[in-house]
């Protein structure tokens, strides 16, 4: 808890001005407006797809791993959230090793698959690249509050408020869908129709889920409209979404990773477009 007046709106975070709301807000990296992370990760991605060599991707990945502790994400959470990336990486590598453009020494050739020095190198470079883009993309958004992102998108990138707030409300409702799905499943068991016909049951549950979601969405739309949403006239924003020092620093660090990795690759002579 902070005393009134001490926590003046942290840069980038959506904070009521004056800080007299009796709450503590995230500081440091976690207080950075998510739009900055979004732009930074996009820029890093562009830097990394310019070349297809091992060195640039490896350098980027090493730098990221070194910076990762700054985010203070529990290893367990990080592993769980990055698991889709971790699964995708070996699969990508394998398929490129087998089917990538052959060059150099040939290891074995099955006709449809041809593993060569060239395809192995390409596989490694791609695997590192997917990791180097995927890791920050996941790690920086693990704890992002959708509201902060929406504020940034609407106030900083000037996306239409109707669209952004509509999407925000929709995200909030998805958690309810999970509950609905469990209820639907239990109801089918209770009615004696859950022993067989999994596919058909799934279809009927999906239909019911759709009906429930539409009904909720209609009610929410009425609730939003009744509070003046979509009314003509200028909308104000209760929360500030600033793009100041910390945000520039975030973009700088991410672009920096990209630039350093390119520079090292060029220096080592492995850079190729």
């Amino acid at each position: 808890m902070t005393a009134p007046g001490t926590s003046v709106g942290l840069p980038g975070r959506s904070v009521p001005p004056g800080g007299a709301d009796g709450t503590t807000r995230a500081r440091g990296v976690r207080g950075v407006q998510p739009v900055a992370s979004l732009l930074g990760v996009l820029a890093l991605g562009v830097c990394l797809v310019l070349s297809l060599d091992v060195v640039s991707a490896a350098v980027a990945l090493v730098l990221e791993v070194l910076l990762l502790p700054l985010l203070r994400i529990p290893p367990r959470t990080l592993l769980l959230r990055t698991s889709p990336v971790l699964v995708a990486v070996p699969l990508t590598a394998l398929s490129i090793a087998l089917y990538g453009r052959p060059s150099g020494r040939s290891w074995f050739d099955l006709g449809f698959a041809h593993v060569t020095d060239g395809s192995l190198e390409l596989a490694l470079a791609t695997a590192l690249r997917v990791l180097a883009v995927g890791l920050p993309a996941v790690a920086l958004f693990v704890r992002v509050d959708p509201t902060d992102l929406a504020d940034g998108l609407a106030q900083l990138l000037r996306l239409p408020a109707r669209f952004v707030l509509g999407a925000l409300a929709a995200i909030r409702m998805t958690t309810l869908l999970g509950d609905d799905w469990r209820q639907l499943g239990m109801a089918r068991r209770a009615r004696g129709v859950a022993d067989t016909g999994r596919l058909r049951r799934g279809a009927s549950m999906a239909f019911a889920l759709l009906v429930l979601a539409l009904r909720r969405a209609t009610t929410l739309a009425v609730a939003m409209e009744s509070r003046g949403f979509g009314a003509p006239g200028r909308r104000t924003w209760a929360r500030t979404a600033r793009f100041a020092g910390p945000e520039w620093a975030m973009v700088g660090v991410l672009v920096g990773i990209g630039v350093v990795s390119i520079a090292v690759a060029v220096g080592a002579g492995t850079w190729r477009v």
Partner: peptide, 23 residues
Amino acid sequence: AHTVMSRVGDDVAFGCENAGVPR
């Protein structure tokens, strides 16, 4: 079905924002 925002303060502020009340 009619809680719009995910934080208490934001939800109360929602109508004021739409009405263009200064921050």
